[in-house]
Amino acid sequence: MSNTTQDLSLDPHGAHGHGAHDNPHLGEQFEDIAQQYDTYTVGMWAFIVQEVMFFGGVFAAYAIYRYKYLEAFSYAHLELDVFWGTVNTFVLLFSSFTMALGVRAAMLQARKAQIGFFLATILFACVFMGVKYVEYSAKFDHGLIPGHNFTLYTEHLNEVREKHPHVAEAVEKNPALVPQMELFFGFYFAMTGLHGLHVLIGIIVIGALVIRAWINKNKPLDYMPVEMVGLYWHLVDIVWIFLFPLLYLVGGH
């Protein structure tokens, strides 16, 4: 990515001409490509640090309630579908793999391979979102929408009884569990929603890189933004690596 700026390109002294900048992707504020690469890498990692803290806030809140309402959360998570969760984890791990190969292709200046791997990554990301759609609509149908339609454990308790009789029994004995279970689904939607938003952003950014690689056929590939987007995508994967067991698995089956 060339950071050539309007203001900086104005140089009456000629002390800062373009002679030093042989690489078209070298920003004006940098001395050489090594400095630029280091700077981009550290900058992206600093961004990842802030993403970790951003998700960390909601993970902390979730962890506290998991501790406080151990019983209710263990019951509530039974309504999540481990099968779809596993499929999505698989899909996302595989997309990380294709992303890593795409970055590698960009390092080797293999344009077609990069575009191919990135398109595969986008495909997997879309599958992920599709599965999320299936899951979310199932929650709508079952009355598991906190704040609006949370009726599974009150009006439709019989549905619960068929699959998990001990949950229905516990809820009948202690109705105070229901708002706590509602809280679980509040976290489920907040956390997966936030993660899904990151996947969507990822799709857009990766798509932009595909278009860029497609258009600039005659220029050498600009490798740096490719690696930075790769780092972002792996981060999205890591967040899911934690979300999946904490939401779908922990609490027994």
């Binding site: 809140a61 406080k68 309402y69 906190p146 704040g147 609006h148 509602e182 809280l183 509040g186 939607f189």
Partner: peptide, 17 residues
């Protein structure tokens, strides 16, 4: 906007969090 209860003590939430 959506009516979650994460910080609402009436619905099991904890304002101190």
């Amino acid at each position: 906007l959506l009516g979650l209860g994460i910080f609402d003590p009436a619905r099991g939430g904890d304002p101190i969090l």
